[in-house]
Amino acid sequence: MQVWAVANQKGGVGKTTTVVTLAGLLAEVGYKVLLVDLDPHGSLTSYFRYDPDELEHSVYDLFEQLQVEPERTRGLILDTNREGVDLMPASTALATLERRAVGKEGMGLQVAKALATQKQSYDFALIDSPPVLGVLMVNALAACNHLLVPVQTEFLALKGLQRMIRTIEMVNRARRNKLEYTIVPTFYDRRTQASVSSLRELHRLYEENISSAVVPIDTKFRNASLKGLVPSSLDAGSRGVHAYAKLLRNLLERRRQGKVDG
């Protein structure tokens, strides 16, 4: 099973949209996909019309005891309205996890352990991470084969990206295998100088890691969210879906060439 995490230490950059859109496109070509919501805000969970305030069981359960049991993990997984896509939801209880994790050993590997128990059931797992460096993001980074970093094409987002790059460097000092990452420019508007200059700066600073697929501002993403549908189900021909389809082709090609572990 390939595990891709989507993370950035800045909110509002398109993390959940990236997860949902890629999941829909993977399912369209026959892959079985598990989504994992590690954000206490539960945007991914809410997207598929589950209420993080009301769920009795969620990914939080993985942290209640260090022993991860396959059946218990399977019991956390919910159906979505997209065939081929399942969800391990978040609950608002995740917001208390940082405080409870203080001083506990092994808390950074719980998600990796849980996904290992499900590797025969899914081809891909996509993790939606919180925009804060803590035990939840550490779990996402420890579990993944490849990291996607959506970055809004505007100046302040570029400053936030620097923090994320430092985090990746820190993680790589602790990992046996280097964590490869792809920067995904989002919310691009070619009509504005701010977007154009920000994209140019991203290429200047991170040429080796930036995706050639640039995700434009696209109201179809909002429309899909309002209906709880993966964007390709609502409008497969939209500009945003085309951008993510290009990103996915590139990622799958890297995987075929062995440049993405797993």
Score class of each variant (00 low, 15 high):
Val184Trp: 01
Lys113Gly: 02
Arg249Tyr: 03
Asp51Trp: 11
Arg100Tyr: 12
Thr117Tyr: 07
Asn81His: 10
Ala194Ser: 14
Thr96Glu: 14
Glu207Pro: 02
Pro131Asn: 08
Leu205His: 06
Pro40Leu: 09
Lys220His: 12
Thr153Asn: 09
Asn8Gln: 15
Ala245Val: 00
Arg255Lys: 15
Arg99Leu: 15
Glu208Leu: 11
Met170Thr: 14
Ala23Gln: 04
Ser212Ile: 02
Gln9Leu: 15
Val3Asn: 09
Gly12Val: 11
Leu234His: 08
Glu169Val: 07
Val68Arg: 05
Leu87Trp: 02
Leu205Arg: 13
Leu35Thr: 00
Ala112Glu: 13
Gly262Leu: 11
Val132Tyr: 08
Thr18Cys: 06
Leu158Val: 11
Glu54Trp: 12
Phe63Leu: 06
Glu83Arg: 12
Asp235Ser: 06
Tyr60Pro: 09
Gln257Thr: 04
Leu38His: 04
Gln67Thr: 13
Glu83His: 13
Leu226Ile: 15
Ala224Val: 05
Phe155Ile: 12
Gly42Ile: 10
Gly75Ile: 08
Val132Ala: 10
Val6Arg: 06
Asn172Val: 00
Ala116Thr: 02
Lys15Ala: 03
Asp123Gly: 05
Thr96Met: 12
Ala27Thr: 04
Ala194Asn: 06
Leu109Ile: 05
Val33Ile: 12
Asp39His: 05
Glu83Asp: 15
Tyr31Trp: 00
